[in-house]
C-alpha cells in the first residue's frame, strides 16, 4: 500500500507540483519587469548611456571615469617584464626585449597588442608595475583589415651598427674613469 502510494500518487503530485512551481516562477519574473516597463519608482531609470558622438552630444570626456578604452604603452617606462603578456586572458600581447644601451637598461623591441582579440578586461593595466600600460579614452578602433588592428608600441629590433655604437660609447664613458 505504502509502496503504491509512493510510486504513483506522490510521483503525480510532484510532477504537477513542479509544473505549477515553474509556471509561478515564470510569471514571477514577468511581473518583476513590469515596474521597469511602466517606469515606476526612482531606481527604474535606464542604466545605460548614449554612445558618445555628435548625435547624443557627448564626447569622450563624458565617458565614465573608469571606462576602458584602447590601450597605450609608454615604451620609455616599460621594463619589458612580460607580466602583461602572461596575465592577458586573450593572449593578445606580445612582448620581446633585449639588452639596451647599458647592461642595466632593457630595450623593448616588440610590444604588440592585437585589438581584434583584446576583451578590454584591464588585467594587463592592473599588473603593470611601472604603470606604463594605460587605457586611453579612445573607443573607436574599427579597421578594414584584421592586421590593422594590431597596435605596435615596440622600439624595433636593435641593429648591429647601433649595438656597435653603444659598445663604443660605453667604452668611451668607462675609460676616463679608469684613468682617474
Amino acid at each position: 500500500m505504502m509502496y503504491f502510494r509512493r510510486s504513483v500518487f506522490i510521483a503525480l503530485f510532484w510532477y504537477l507540483h513542479s509544473i505549477v512551481k515553474s509556471s509561478l516562477s515564470i510569471a514571477g519574473s514577468c511581473f518583476a519587469t513590469l515596474p521597469y516597463l511602466l517606469r515606476i519608482g526612482e531606481s527604474r531609470k535606464e542604466v545605460t548611456d548614449g554612445y558618445p558622438d555628435p548625435i547624443s552630444s557627448k564626447t569622450a570626456d563624458d565617458l565614465p571615469p573608469r571606462s576602458r578604452g584602447l590601450l597605450f604603452n609608454d615604451i620609455e617606462r616599460c621594463t619589458g617584464c612580460g607580466d602583461c603578456e602572461h596575465v592577458c586572458p586573450a593572449g593578445c600581447i606580445e612582448v620581446a626585449s633585449e639588452p639596451g644601451a647599458h647592461d642595466s637598461r632593457i630595450w623593448v623591441s616588440v610590444f604588440d597588442v592585437d585589438f581584434s582579440r583584446c576583451v578590454f578586461c584591464g588585467l594587463c593595466v592592473d599588473i603593470c608595475q611601472p604603470m606604463s600600460l594605460v587605457h586611453t579614452r579612445q573607443y573607436e578602433g574599427a579597421a578594414y583589415q584584421l592586421e590593422d588592428l594590431v597596435a605596435s608600441f615596440g622600439r624595433g629590433q636593435v641593429t648591429e651598427e647601433q649595438r656597435e655604437k653603444w659598445h663604443l660609447a660605453r667604452q668611451r664613458l668607462s675609460a676616463p674613469q679608469e684613468g682617474a
Binding site: 521597469y36 516597463l37 527604474r44 531609470k45 542604466v47 545605460t48 548625435i55
Partner: peptide, 14 residues
C-alpha cells in the same frame, strides 16, 4: 523597444 524598457535599457533611439 519594449524589451529595452523591461531591461532598463534605452533601445533603438537614432
Amino acid at each position: 523597444k519594449l524589451s529595452a524598457d523591461l531591461q532598463a535599457r534605452v533601445g533603438p533611439c537614432r
